[in-house]
Design a binder for these strands. Sequence first.
DNA 1: TTTCGTCTAATTGTTAACAATTCGAGCATT
DNA 2: AATGCTCGAATTGTTAACAATTAGACGAAA
Lengths: 204, 204
Amino acid sequence: MSITEKPIRSMREQICDAVRAEVFSGEMTNDQPVREQPLAERFGVSRGSVRDALLQLSQEGVLVYSPNRGVRVSSPPSDAEFRLYAKLRKEIEAHCLDICMDQLTEEDDRNLTNLLATLEDACRRADLSAITETDLAMHRYWVSRASRELESVWLGITVRMLIVYTLLEDYMEVHQEHAAIVEAIVRRDLKGAKRAVNENIRYK
Amino acid sequence: MSITEKPIRSMREQICDAVRAEVFSGEMTNDQPVREQPLAERFGVSRGSVRDALLQLSQEGVLVYSPNRGVRVSSPPSDAEFRLYAKLRKEIEAHCLDICMDQLTEEDDRNLTNLLATLEDACRRADLSAITETDLAMHRYWVSRASRELESVWLGITVRMLIVYTLLEDYMEVHQEHAAIVEAIVRRDLKGAKRAVNENIRYK
DNA sequence: TTTCGTCTAATTGTTAACAATTCGAGCATT
DNA sequence: AATGCTCGAATTGTTAACAATTAGACGAAA
């Protein structure tokens, strides 16, 4: 276990992760209201903690908040907005690779390789929820390595792109593309990594 | 009074706005912890509402949250990050002008002109707090007109640029630049407006 | 039939008390 | 003096009860 590891996750973060995953997997449909009480009972906590989590997810863009009316699942962005998000995301991730590439350790390589294996498994099982989650975790890895501040901005953009319910024709292609990224990173090939990331983030 | 106007602001939003303004005006120094109880007493509400506000400001990037340790004022971004933020911001605002330019009404023109007058007054008084607040409000105007979703992303980027304590040499220049933007918008001159915005958002 | 008001159930907003955690002062030990 | 320990004050985290708001059902009147 690494020293920098933070095994404890606050209640709020756990709820955030769970709800976010359910939204991405399509278990919660767009515009469907998300109630506080049922979630509180499901997680065995009080409404206060759930409130905190829902508020944070609203700020992230996963949910939309209306005063006195609670939150609902966000609607997908327009095509024009989606293209803008993709452009911004490419620039952020390129910047992050610039920053973190030459300070990555062998442990980072191992972690990324493990994530890649998890992704491959999810692709084989055609488990859209797991694919999305692992995809997010991989990109998040190099972004968070570069800057905690940027990570927050990046997440807000990325979750909005993931709201769209994408039915992929070829799941294994997802794995291929990420394998190319990880290979380039392990080789410390900055240009190659940027190119691979650029090809992975598509304009829909 | 317009129908779409929302005169009521939730307690959380009021606290957010107040704390945000104080951070931008330099009244709260970097890395200084922000305690819940004093704020609660100041606003005459309970800690719960203050908690909500501080959590939201953390997500926005104005404050930094540490579990069990509360929040503190964010540190300014590095030069490289600042340049990236400026680039992203230019692209977002250009996109928003694209979207909203031809659906602006005469009332929007009046609102922008009023904001410009407020800005001019603040520049004359050399009131850095008011200048920052009005500057933010003006840019936010065309962003929010284009998309509520984008507004949230844009705010996260913009507040991080404003954390830096900028001591301007010529306050009236700020007014000049915004006057150029508003003039172009009132003329419905898309290219001119984009150019003026581009020149206003500087790489530090 | 349509429209308007009233009531009620469901839901969110707020509060105050209590639990858990952090951090530093002070002291004992080496 | 330096190190490690205990304790307590300050602070955040969580909870449950209460207040305020919303939305929909139900009628009454035009």
